[in-house]
């Protein structure tokens, strides 16, 4: 018996006014799999990521995230699905500026468990694993871009999500920082989560087990027959 895919999207459509931004997209991502999504600006990559992350609702199609259909859930249950099942990494301004790196990482865990001290301990351990222990108490706005992105990855992982969605996670980083962030992201798959990375960078895409391309709201490569692929180390 196999477990349900981490992401199972079928025929997703999203329209804004008279424009179809996502046009019948189907996508399946299994646990432990890493998938990159490339395409030109405005082709619908981020919109698809937001649909999969339940930050937006599709106009048509079916979507299952870790076996749950977010389109049938109320706002509070979708919020719960996001905090317990999903992790997000955005391109920039990922952190709450008034919080320290440690607090940024701990916040989602505190929200889930209700126990602050335990969340802080877990956050400290994660930061340590990503080589950021010395920067744990630095305010978010004084971290370098690379450090901030690694903190964001740590925050995305703190609740052991089944799906991590990353939108241009290395978009504004130098190569050294990009490698550090990608190392952190591939760690996600090693821990058993599905990873979907939106990127313009072929180098980043190459680090993923499967590469998809979008154009004008459609996935150019049919996805449904693709076998799950493990992330490359």
């Amino acid at each position: 018996m196999t477990s349900s895919p981490a992401i199972d999207a079928r025929g997703l459509v999203r329209r804004y006014a008279d424009r179809t931004v996502i046009d019948h997209v189907s996508l399946t991502v299994s646990a432990g799999e890493s998938v990159s999504l490339m395409g030109t600006s405005g082709c619908g990559k981020t919109t698809l990521l937001h649909l999969l992350g339940t930050l937006d609702r599709p106009d048509e199609g079916q979507l299952l995230i870790a076996g749950q259909d977010p389109t049938t859930l109320g706002e509070r249950k979708r919020a719960r699905l996001r905090r317990e099942t999903l992790g997000f990494v955005f391109q920039q301004s990922n952190l709450l500026p008034s919080l320290s790196a440690l607090e940024n990482v701990a916040l989602p865990a505190w929200r889930v468990s209700g126990r602050r001290a335990e969340a802080m301990d877990r956050a400290a351990a994660l930061l340590s694993r990503f080589g950021l222990a010395a920067r744990a108490h630095a305010k978010a706005h004084i971290l370098s871009l690379g450090e901030a992105q690694r903190v964001a990855v740590a925050r995305a992982l703190i609740n052991s999500p089944r799906v991590v969605l990353a939108d241009e996670p290395s978009g504004s980083l130098d190569s050294g920082s990009t490698n550090a962030v990608l190392d952190a992201l591939t760690e996600v798959c090693r821990l058993g989560a599905a990873l979907l990375v939106v990127t313009h960078d072929p180098g980043v895409a190459a680090r993923c087990g499967r590469q998809l391309v979008m154009r004008d709201g459609r996935l150019l490569q049919s996805d449904s027959a693709s076998p799950p692929a493990r992330a490359q180390a």
């Binding site: 509070r76 919020a79 719960r80 905090r83 997000f88 301004s93 709450l96 916040l107 929200r111 889930v112």
Partner: peptide, 16 residues
């Protein structure tokens, strides 16, 4: 607003 978006992505509900 950006922070509100981030908190929503982290799973904070409207009530939160």
């Amino acid at each position: 607003r950006r922070q509100i978006g981030l908190l929503t992505a982290m799973g904070f509900s409207r009530l939160d």
